[in-house]
Nucleic acid binder design. Structure first.
Lengths: 206, 206
DNA sequence: TTTGAAAACTTAACAGTGTTAAGTATATTT
DNA sequence: AAATATACTTAACACTGTTAAGTTTTCAAA
């Protein structure tokens, strides 16, 4: 009999509607305002029901974090069209920054907040989303190195450095640290700094 | 009569002992565990007394953030001994990273947490600590540019980029995002990435 | 068709958070 | 000594994540 199957389906539906509600609250009100109770209210269930479908709040935030990586991945797809690895790296940077600007909450969850990482630590799991994204970067960096564009000593160290530069620009901006600049300049500083970085990279290879 | 003077002194003493208690809790238990109640318990006053000396929690965190900048500033002093501006920039990076590693909680408060910035927004004040530190960087970058080491198009954009790279490396590390690497490599990744960055900078000028 | 167990969900509560209004001592002035 | 101003505390509000215990619903077996 298909009763168990139906129940499993129903479990799935509710689990997904919890995640949908969480996403809505998260995108509308932000990370801080995403509480178990606010999610529960949205789906019209009691707060404790959520714990029957997710171990704890971190598990929900981790699920949202994964969604963020899917979104970033979809934005990265166009990069496959760029044949030249050096141009691809540059374009990758633009896509990355654009993502961070368009979806600051997702970005924060993916690369700044500690909450989603807690789940990994507990379960001794690997950070698949991060690893595969970083692998994508490494792949192009290695190609650059092979073709003499970016003569790093170490692919991983070089890739991490590239990543860190973009992350730093986005994070400092998001956390209001561009207050060190005029208001006018603050707004464009990420673009300006990225341009300088590109010049730096251009000078590095060849 | 010196009664008012004495009272003012006493107010000062208590205000400072609140800050000392806050610092102790902050450094011992970390940002998340630094609550008004835990500070109050340490000085053996009721939690509400704290509000007679600080407007709110953000004001206390801002005060701690300022302390962090004093500490960073003291570490930066040795840089005055470095005559060559390019070497000074490099050394500055090392000092910055060392500070972030030695005092991750202070670093977080100074460059990542939104709490201390709230005070500025409310009072429409400038971020003196940040501005003067950034000015120090800009000064050396400008010298580099004048001497052909770092041919940036824009001092501020170039300085922001340098800052962002270091910040990104430290912040990704602190927030556990170096999980994209082997555990072994994770531990040394900031140093390795900084080395690659230095190579990049070397190739830029001259 | 009724009984009993299992599953799904809720209520109430714990322990914690920042913050405020109202009340109580203490110190100073009149 | 009485009135006032200052310093501090108590109690409470409105939240937070999370859990134990209780209730309702669903389903299977007698």
């Amino acid at each position: 009999m298909g009763i168990n199957e139906r129940k499993e389906r129903e479990r799935d539906v509710l689990q997904k509607s919890i995640l949908t509600a969480a996403r809505e609250v998260f995108l509308e009100k932000g990370f801080d305002q995403t509480s178990i109770r606010s999610i529960a209210q949205k789906i019209e269930y009691s707060p404790t029901t959520i714990y029957l479908y997710y171990k704890d709040k971190d598990a929900i935030l981790f699920a949202l974090h994964s969604e963020g990586f899917l979104l970033l991945g979809s934005k990265m797809e166009v990069l496959n069209l760029v044949e030249n690895p050096f141009e691809r790296i540059k374009a990758m940077g633009r896509v990355y920054i654009q993502f961070a600007m368009d979806h600051p909450d997702y970005y924060d969850l993916m690369f700044v907040q500690k909450s989603p990482m807690n789940k990994l630590d507990e379960d001794h799991e690997v950070w698949k989303e991060g690893v595969s994204t970083f692998d994508g970067l490494k792949y192009s960096v290695q190609q650059c190195m092979d073709q003499g564009y970016l003569p790093f000593a170490d692919v991983e160290a070089g890739s991490y450095m590239l990543w860190a530069t973009l992350h730093g620009m986005c994070n400092l901006y998001d956390r209001g640290r561009c207050k060190v600049l005029d208001e006018e300049k603050s707004e464009q500083i990420v673009d300006l700094a990225f341009t300088e970085f590109l010049k730096l990279l251009d000078a590095f290879g060849r």
